[in-house]
């Protein structure tokens, strides 16, 4: 259920660009989704298939690349990649600091799309 609003927004942007470029058919959409997102690739595709019926993006494949969670150490400002499974126990690779600020890892970014 949580995939629905996100997928709807993805489709809206895809169709906007498809129309602006006088596309006949959208073949593939390349997305970058942060690893912090709880949404499953498979379900995003299923909802996309359902919502895109009868549109220019019908049958388009979503190619999802998961982007890492990057945090910045509050003590020394060093940025490092965090293990999503282990966010409760992160230690700065530079200074051993425990407190951090999230820099990226929660985005839903549409990179580009292959169209005809």
């Amino acid at each position: 259920m949580h995939e629905l609003p996100i997928t709807e927004s993805i489709l809206k942007i895809v169709l906007k660009h498809a129309r602006a470029n006088s596309v006949h058919k959208v073949m593939t959409v390349h997305l970058r989704i942060g690893k912090l997102s709880d949404l499953e690739d498979e379900w995003i595709q299923r909802y996309f298939d359902y919502l895109s019926k009868g549109t220019l993006a019908e049958e388009a494949k979503l190619k999802i690349e998961r982007t890492p969670v990057i945090v910045r150490c509050n003590a020394c400002s060093e940025s490092y990649e965090a293990d999503v499974k282990n966010l409760n126990d992160l230690t700065c690779t530079a200074c051993g600091g425990k407190e951090y600020t999230l820099i990226s890892g929660r985005e839903y970014y549409i990179k580009n799309m292959e169209v005809q």
């Binding site: 660009h17 970014y109 549409i110 990179k111 292959e114």
Partner: peptide
Amino acid sequence: LIEVKEDI
């Protein structure tokens, strides 16, 4: 290829 570059 069409560049989109938008965050939803």
